[in-house]
Simulated scan of single mutants.
Amino acid sequence: MLDSIIFDLDGTLWDSSDEVLKLWNEVVKKHHVSDAITKEQLEGCMGLQNKEIGQKLLPHLDEKAQEMILKECNEVECLYLAEHGAQLYQDVEKVLKALSEKYKLFIVSNCQSGYIEAFYQSHRLDKYFTDYEHPGRTGLTKGENIKLIIERNKLENSVYVGDTEGDLKGARFAGVPFVYAKYGFGQVDEYDYDYVINRFSELLDLFIDKKILSNNT
Rank of each mutant, 00 (worst) to 15 (best):
E101M: 13
L155K: 09
C111N: 06
A171F: 01
Q121F: 01
P135R: 03
S201D: 06
F106N: 03
L125A: 02
I116E: 10
P177N: 05
G175D: 07
D163K: 06
T141I: 09
I146D: 06
S201C: 04
E202F: 02
L203N: 08
R124C: 04
G136R: 09
Y132W: 13
Y195K: 02
V159W: 10
R124P: 06
Y191H: 14
Y195C: 07
I197P: 02
R199D: 14
G143R: 00
D163P: 03
E156V: 11
L140H: 06
V188S: 03
G114Y: 12
A171E: 10
R199S: 15
F129H: 11
P177G: 08
V161A: 05
Q187H: 14
R199M: 08
F200V: 04
A118D: 11
F185M: 06
D209F: 02
A174F: 06
Y195L: 11
G166D: 05
K211G: 00
L140Y: 07
D189P: 12
L204S: 10
Y132C: 10
I107N: 12
A174H: 04
G186N: 12
N110Y: 07
P177W: 03
I146T: 12
Q112E: 15
H134D: 04
N153S: 05
Y193F: 15
R172H: 12
I107L: 00
E133I: 00
E202Q: 14
N198L: 07
F178E: 06
Y180T: 01
G136V: 01
S158F: 11
I146R: 07
S109C: 10
